[in-house]
Design a protein around this nucleic acid. Structure first.
Length: 503
RNA sequence: GCAGGCGUAGCUCAGUUGGUUAGAGCGCCGGUCUGUGGAACCGGAGGUCGGUGGUUCAAGUCCACCCGCCUGUACCA
């Protein structure tokens, strides 16, 4: 121990949470558990089975982010093992699944259909509702190239949203196709390796349609755009005609699906990939139509781009369509709460043979933030345990026995474990903070009569709230919220209080 | 990453052109009240003014850098 000199406080370690990370309390944990169980139910109904992989993988298995000496943790949390091999925390659940499938390919029944949820980590700038650790819940079909697998994933996403309490119409699953986008890019002469950079810029511009609108996208396709803070974003530098082509694609008819697909087909007519993509969208549209999901739940939407790296065909995105206001009355934009697509190249990276795959991911953390703001998820504390107070300090064993009896009757119960010198008032204050439905008191008078006092804390609070008088009156009201029963009837009486509290 | 804003008690915030010992409300602790949650009244604790350095007789206040938070933007598997 350092000798603490008077006047100079010893240097204390500062308790602080690293930025972009969050502690979670009982209400949030309960909400997450509910969401996970709900999603699990939907995914299992579709025939998917669980699989779990670790949070850490070899960095090269995760994909494009190979740490270099200067910036080993750019985007991904990475560190070196004993043998100097780079390891990383996973930043999604798809790349680890591809590794798992490739490693166990011989033993899996193909098509392999699995689901998993877990924490993923991204080392990037945090924001509201955006953390460096967050939860995803994925389902994937590996080894099936049919569009039926893609259509099914979209319908399952819609089912999951509704099971979670998002009403039909308050969300939409949007579907597009990367091959169609490639076709558009070919149509404006951005094919070939030389134009890879500009292709990315165009795709990023398209991805911003919902936020910036058609005019904003046009600026980004052309010379560039200046934002509210005066910051300038350089554009793709397309000419007028090319801009019109891209914007024409984004503006295709959306109400009549066959007509929309015909328009798309015309726009990509010079590109084989583009025509393939349109045909894939037709396949998906037919399937969701046949299943009745074309009523607004699942929609073809040309503006969906999704990640830029590994998707090879259909891409999907789930968006919330209602508006939520924050405490200050400003609209909160949640954006996409889930997404996915076909990634035919991801497993084959490990295999030397083509393995088609398609999958979908729900951003549990972001969706939870949205549902909480919407009031769909309670953030009220769960009821606490029944508190058995300590009145006579030499009779702790008796009180403990009551606690045991309650627990054996499957009732959450606790003995007061704080300072035993605290009087009943202080103990009740604790019960109040714990949100306990009731407290048990047995003083010497009750003991002599073979009775226990049950104090209904919820009823007591109601009585006190409706009559805030002087102390005498207050104590009288409080007495009404408590009653005595025979020791033997303790469990039964507590049950009645709990039943009242639950109603 | 870039641009802008903000940082004073556990929380929400005052704090004058730089000038004695930095304040308020709420919360917390104690008392009125040997055996009952609240209210009221009285009393009390709690602050390296985000951090470091500088200018000055004097810095919460001015300057520089750093850290953190917020807004926009970029990136986003």
């Amino acid at each position: 121990m350092a000798d603490a000199k008077p006047g100079k406080k010893p240097q204390k370690l500062k308790a602080r949470l690293p930025r972009g990370l969050a502690d979670r309390g009982p209400a949030e944990i309960a909400a997450t558990r509910m969401m996970v169980e709900t999603i699990r139910g939907v995914y299992e109904r579709y025939g998917f089975e669980p699989v779990e992989t670790p949070a850490i993988e070899y960095t090269d298995a995760l994909g494009k982010f190979l740490p270099d000496q200067d910036r080993p943790n750019e985007g991904v949390f990475s560190f070196q093992d004993d043998d100097e091999q780079w390891l990383s925390l996973r930043y999604d659940l798809t790349a680890p699944l591809a590794r798992y499938v490739a490693e166990n390919y011989q033993h899996l029944a193909l098509p392999y259909r699995s689901y998993r949820f877990g924490w993923v980590f991204r080392n990037e700038k945090p924001g509201p509702g955006r953390f460096r650790q967050f939860m995803q819940f994925d389902a994937d079909t590996v080894g099936a190239g049919t569009m039926a697998a893609d259509a099914e994933v979209c319908m399952m996403a819609a089912d999951a949203m509704e099971a979670l309490g998002v009403p039909r119409g308050d969300y939409v699953v949007k579907v597009s196709n990367r091959k169609v986008l490639d076709g558009i890019l070919e149509a404006i002469d951005l094919g070939g390796d030389a134009n890879a950079g500009r292709r990315l810029t165009v795709l990023r511009a398209i991805d911003k349609l919902d936020r910036l609108g058609l005019d904003g996208v046009r600026d980004l396709l052309g010379p560039g755009r200046k934002d509210d803070s005066g910051d300038f974003t350089k554009g793709a530098g397309l000419d007028e005609k090319a801009c019109d082509t891209v914007l024409g694609f984004l503006r295709v008819e959306t109400h009549n699906v066959p007509q929309m697909l015909d328009q798309m087909e015309a726009l990509v007519s010079g590109s084989n990939a583009g025509l393939d993509g349109v045909n894939e969208l037709r396949g998906i549209a037919d399937l969701i139509n046949a299943a009745g999901y074309d009523d607004g739940r699942v929609r073809i939407d040309s503006s969906v781009v999704r990640g830029l790296e590994y998707y090879t065909g259909p891409v999907y995105e789930v968006e919330l369509t209602f508006e939520v206001k924050d405490e200050k009355g400003r609209p909160i934009r949640f954006g996409s709460v889930g997404g996915g697509g076909r990634y035919d190249g991801l497993v084959s990276r490990f295999m030397g043979q083509p393995v088609p795959a398609t999958g979908f991911s729900i951003g549990v953390s972001r969706l939870q933030a949205a549902l909480t703001a919407l009031g769909k998820l309670s953030n009220k504390p769960a009821p606490g345990p029944v508190l058995v107070t300590i009145f006579d300090r030499d009779r702790v064993a008796d009180y403990q026995k009551m606690v045991s009896a309650l627990r054996q009757a499957n009732i959450r119960a606790e003995l007061y474990l704080g300072n035993p010198k605290n009087n009943v008032g202080q103990q009740l204050k604790y019960a109040d903070k714990r949100n306990s439905p009731c407290a048990i008191i047995q003083g010497s008078d009750e003991k002599a009569a073979g009775q226990v006092v049950i104090k209904d804390l919820i009823l007591g609070a109601e009585l006190a709230a409706e009559n805030a008088g002087d102390r005498e009156d207050y104590l009288k009201k409080q007495a009404e919220a408590q009653f005595s029963v025979n020791e033997a009837d303790l469990v039964e009486a507590v049950r009645k209080v709990l039943a009242r509290a639950a109603s």
